[in-house]
Design a protein around this nucleic acid. Structure first.
Length: 424
RNA sequence: GGAGAGGUGGCCGAGUGGUCGAAGGCACCAGAUUGCUAAUCUGGCGUACUGGGUAACCGGUACCGAGGGUUCGAAUCCCUCCCUCUCCGCCA
């Protein structure tokens, strides 16, 4: 959520900045109008209520016979207040809807653009390996080695589901352990094992609700949302809390499965394990002081890059343009690993500075000055990394002419002695 | 799932219809004082919205788990829901 005061007092600026991300100026006008109406009603109602309090107290001090005569009058005032309250409640509902629907303002350094084509490749690291054979896509490798079973995944659940088996499952577990160890031992993150189903308030805090309700799995009976990313529980952990300054910055990491309907991507990436309804991910979340969040974004990106580096897989960092950053984000960098079998760059991480957008929704604050006013923190999140795509990159980059896959050095300690996945 | 108890300010905790935004304590802030790694005293100190003021600040309203109801008036009475704790049942 944006600060209504900013929208109110610097309407033109907000329109310009949001315009860069494709938000229509009319949307801002609607909010400003609704806000004015809301405040007008609020003031009226406050006056009526002040009168009631005042006169009720008088009434209490009156003699009983005198009291009766004023009752009817007071009851009418009470009805007027009730009517005003109902009216205000309606306006507030509409106001909140409007506010929840406005996206975050991009940071000034985010390149202005109209789509994916305007994203900027910031840097690349690692040389793509030269193959003296045609590198196979991971689905061929996985099936031949018996480590990915697509047919049985479909049998068990349906399209976009698959089964990892044997050293395939083991390799994914190794990646998870490797990533979590790096986060917790070297990068200062606290490991969390959060709930995978969250309530509406949690999903609203991060900006996934109300706008993206149709992209999430939802249990109607209990009103639980299956997390599309651990960003939801991690960012909302401290909802409605005032964080002690000494505890900042807070770095959290979690390995969780993620669930996504992938409605928007119907027909895209249907082959392989690149895009499933369920996938594993290691996530990073930071809650930091506002003035540090841009630096923290850089280090967040670096934290994710380090994984690619240690796996010795070529990657590049892409800065998303204003049109491509997500609803809650003010600045986003994607990290893409090279997948020689697919012949494409795979988005394995997306690191965002969400500034105070989510923190305002979640009401997570701190006190910059002891005894002073509270302020909203800034929240950042990034994958570190998405598992299926990392798995693809490992398989395709480390494949050999005979169809076997060599285990990257960094993962060997986690592979129970295996240094290669070969045909049985 | 059954029975009972309970949810009050950053924290603990009192408060059963008006003078309660709410006693008291802790924590915190400012000052005083004694001095020795801290104590004592005095004062201040909730959040949000809103009106006024350059500002310090002053005023109004709302908020005592959430939502509804009764009443001139609700933290307090009634209803529904959520959550926590204890006991029982069931269960991975």
């Amino acid at each position: 959520m944006l600060d209504i005061r900013l929208i109110r007092e610097q309407t033109a600026l907000v329109k310009t900045e949001l315009g860069k991300a494709g938000v229509a100026a009319a949307e801002i006008d609607r909010v400003v109008e609704c806000d004015a109406e809301r405040r007008r009603l609020q003031r009226e109602l406050d006056e009526l209520r002040a009168r009631r309090t005042r006169e009720s107290k008088e009434l209490g001090r009156m003699a009983p016979e005198e009291r009766e005569s004023r009752r009817a009058e007071m009851r009418a005032l009470g009805d007027q207040i009730t009517a005003g309250e109902q009216q205000l409640a309606e306006i507030e509902l509409r106001f909140n809807d409007l506010m929840l629907g406005i996206r975050n303002i991009p940071r000034p350094y985010v390149p202005v653009g109209n789509g994916e084509a305007d994203n900027v490749i910031v840097r690349s690291e690692g040389e793509p390996r030269k193959f003296d054979f045609k590198p196979a896509p991971h689905w061929d490798l996985g099936e031949k080695l018996g480590i990915i079973d697509f047919e049985r995944g479909v049998k068990l659940s349906g399209t976009r589901f698959y089964v990892l088996a044997g050293l395939g499952a083991r390799l994914e577990r190794a990646l998870i352990a490797f990533m979590l160890d790096l986060k917790t031992r070297e990068q200062g993150y606290l490991e969390i094992a959060p709930p995978l189903m969250v309530n509406t308030a949690t999903a609203t805090s991060t900006g996934h609700l109300p706008k993206n309700a149709d992209t999430m799995y939802h249990d109607a009976e209990e009103d639980y949302w299956f997390i599309p990313t651990a960003e939801l529980p991690l960012t909302s952990m401290y909802r409605d809390e005032i964080i002690e300054t000494g505890r900042l910055p807070i770095y959290l990491t979690a390995y969780t499965p993620c669930f996504r309907r992938e409605k928007m991507s119907a027909g895209r990436d249907v082959r392989g394990i690149k895009r499933g309804h369920q996938f594993d991910k290691v996530e990073m979340v930071k809650l930091v002081r506002p003035e540090t969040s841009d630096d923290e974004l850089q280090s967040l990106v670096e934290n994710a890059c380090e994984i690619c580096r240690r796996l010795e897989i070529p990657f590049r960092v892409v800065q998303l343009c204003t049109a491509d950053i997500s609803f809650a984000s003010a600045a986003t960098y994607d990290i893409e690993m090279w997948a020689p079998g697919l012949g494409e760059w795979l988005e394995v991480s997306s690191c965002s500075n969400c500034t105070d957008f989510q923190m305002r929704r979640a009401n997570i604050r701190y006190r910059p000055q002891k005894g002073g006013k509270t302020e909203f923190l800034h929240a950042l999140n990034g994958s570190g990394l998405g598992l299926p795509r990392t798995l693809i990159a490992v398989m395709e980059n480390y494949q050999q002419a005979d169809g076997s896959i060599v285990i990257p050095e960094a993962l060997r300690p986690y592979m129970g002695g295996a240094d290669r996945i070969s045909l049985a």
